[in-house]
Nucleic acid binder design. Structure first.
Lengths: 117, 117
DNA sequence: TCGTTATTTCGAGTATTCTCGAATTATGGA
DNA sequence: TCCATAATTCGAGAATACTCGAAATAACGA
C-alpha cells in the first residue's frame, strides 16, 4: 500500500459521519446497504451522504454496486487489513515484544461471537 | 473504546506529517525518538511538529516522556489494537467469512522478519 | 413517453485545520 | 545566576473540508 492510499483511508475514517457509515456497513456485512438505507439509519441528508460515500469509495474502504434504482454499498475489510499492515510495517525490526499486543487482534479477539472466525 | 477516541486517533493518522511521525516511531520501537530527532528526520519545523505531536499524544497513539532537556516520544501499539478492534466490532455478527482477511493480520503477516512475534 | 424514485453533482457559505514567525517555558551546565 | 538548548504556546493568514439547497442523471413501471 502506498502512503497516499493509507492517508486517504485514514482521513476518510477520521470524520464522524464517515466513521458511522463504515461501522454500519461492517455490521451490515456482505449484504451491504443502499445509500438510502444508510441515509435513513444515520439521519444524514442524501446529498451530504453521497459526498461521504464518494470519499469512502475512493479510499477503497467501501465498494458500490448498482442494484436497480438503488446503489448498494459494502465495507471492504481487506483494505482495512492492508491498511493496518501498512501502519505497523517494520514494527518488529528491533523490538519484537512491541508487536505482541497486535497479535491479539487476530481471530480470537474480534470474532468472539462466532467460533468460526 | 469510545467513538470520540477512535475519531481522534483516525483523524490524527489521516494527516501526512502525523502519519509520517507515527510510522517513524513505530520503526523506532521502544527507544522512541526525541522531538528534535523527529524534526530533523522529517524536516518539519519544531513548532509545527509540536502541534502534530500534541494531536498524536491526545489521541493516545504516542506517549511523551521528558528526558533531561529533550522529550522522548514513543508509539503506543496497544492503542492501535484497540482502534482496529473498534473498527471491526460486530463484523462477524452475520457473516464470519468477512473476518477471514483480518485474521491474517496476526503474528505471521506483520512480523515476518522476526520469528518471535 | 412520462412520472416517480434513488442517487449524485454543482456552487456557495461556514467552519475547521495547517503552517509559520515570534514569544514563552523548562532544563542543564558554566 | 546567566546563558544556551529543547520544546511548546500563541496569533494570524491561507488552504481545505463540511454541509446544504437546487439541479442533474439514472432506472423502473405505467
Amino acid at each position: 500500500m502506498e502512503k497516499e492510499d493509507a492517508l486517504n483511508a485514514l482521513a476518510a475514517l477520521g470524520q464522524e459521519t464517515r466513521l458511522d457509515v463504515f461501522r454500519l456497513l461492517v455490521k451490515a456485512g456482505k449484504e451491504g446497504m443502499t445509500a438510502g438505507a444508510i441515509s435513513d439509519a444515520l439521519e444524514v441528508r442524501p446529498n451530504t451522504l453521497s459526498t461521504h460515500l464518494g470519499a469512502l469509495s475512493r479510499s477503497g474502504l467501501v465498494h458500490a454496486e448498482r442494484d436497480g434504482r438503488s446503489i448498494c454499498y459494502r465495507a471492504d475489510l481487506q483494505t482495512m487489513q492492508v491498511l493496518v499492515t501498512y501502519l505497523l510495517q517494520d514494527c518488529c525490526g528491533g523490538n519484537p515484544e512491541l508487536c505482541a499486543p497486535i497479535a491479539s487482534i487476530a481471530a480470537g479477539k474480534i470474532c468472539d461471537t462466532e467460533g468460526s472466525c
